[in-house]
Design a protein around this nucleic acid. Structure first.
Lengths: 141, 141
DNA sequence: TGATACTTGACTATTTTGGTCAGGTTTATA
DNA sequence: TATAAACCTGACCAAAATAGTCAAGTATCA
């Protein structure tokens, strides 16, 4: 089970953005340089973040991106959701009425995976972008 | 982030095995039929489980597999470890002294991923095979 | 009017996943 | 002792996901 780099980069980029937020828009070029993420890839990611209204874009010279909500109100869940980073533990969800492996009952471990998903999502629901920025500032001191 | 089917199947198969454990060895053929998992694939998985001493094999006619420890003492962690299902949230662990993206500091979100890993592994450390069997029996009533 | 920056979509190489297939070896039992 | 059931091993492969790159724009500010 692994986290994809899209999700990881999205969070890294947003933490970077959040630290500079409030003064000027932050350009993807700057984030790319600071975080070592390819500019093209960042563009893909921010396109998704914009569609989900997590960031706003500012065009033109000195343009860039700004947060669309307060950092405290942006949870990891929102970010992962935006970039399609999903926690998938079972493949049998859709046909859960029919049962899992085409059988009439749920597979022996169905409940387990549901619990696991909930457990992980709890973590994501609690953490906000603001938490991350603060943790980061503390570490720097 | 998704769970691979190898890990899922390993747990399913072991729960199946644990339910019949104690009387006779359970053949992979039976597990294959009951759980709808390819026999060849099961063999791959059980080979790994045996190497990690989670199960014991009994050869010959009427042979099969039995648990090598009590179900209560087999944690999900052990199972996932055996089949190489790992929780990977960062790729930067190895060079953690140097920092992540080749830079001198840890990446902004390094701590976050560590926390996440711990959070998930906590779940796996707590759950034993025995828990799963019991949950399953309860549901059946 | 140019430079900067966002926007979109197609494309692709690599890796991982989720197996299959073939050809064994071992052992209980008839 | 033959044979069938069961384990054991390793090679192989197709499909999907990942992790981007590339190209060709469009919008806007200075």
């Amino acid at each position: 089970m692994r986290l994809t780099s899209k999700g990881r980069y999205a969070v890294m980029a947003l933490v970077d953005l959040a630290r500079f937020d409030g003064i000027n828009p932050v350009s993807l070029r700057d984030i790319s340089l600071r975080q070592g993420i390819s500019l093209d890839y960042l563009e893909q990611i921010f396109s998704k973040l914009r569609k989900k209204e997590i960031v706003q874009s500012v065009r033109g010279t000195q343009g860039g991106y700004i947060l669309n909500r307060k950092a405290k109100e942006i949870k990891l869940t929102n970010i992962f959701d935006a970039v399609d980073e999903k926690v998938k533990t079972v493949q049998c969800k859709k046909e859960s009425k029919k049962g899992c492996n085409g059988k009439s009952t749920k597979c022996l471990t169905h409940n387990l995976w549901d619990e696991l998903e909930t457990h992980i999502n709890n973590f994501f629901d609690k953490k906000s972008l603001d938490d991350l920025v603060k943790e980061n500032l503390e570490r720097r001191l």
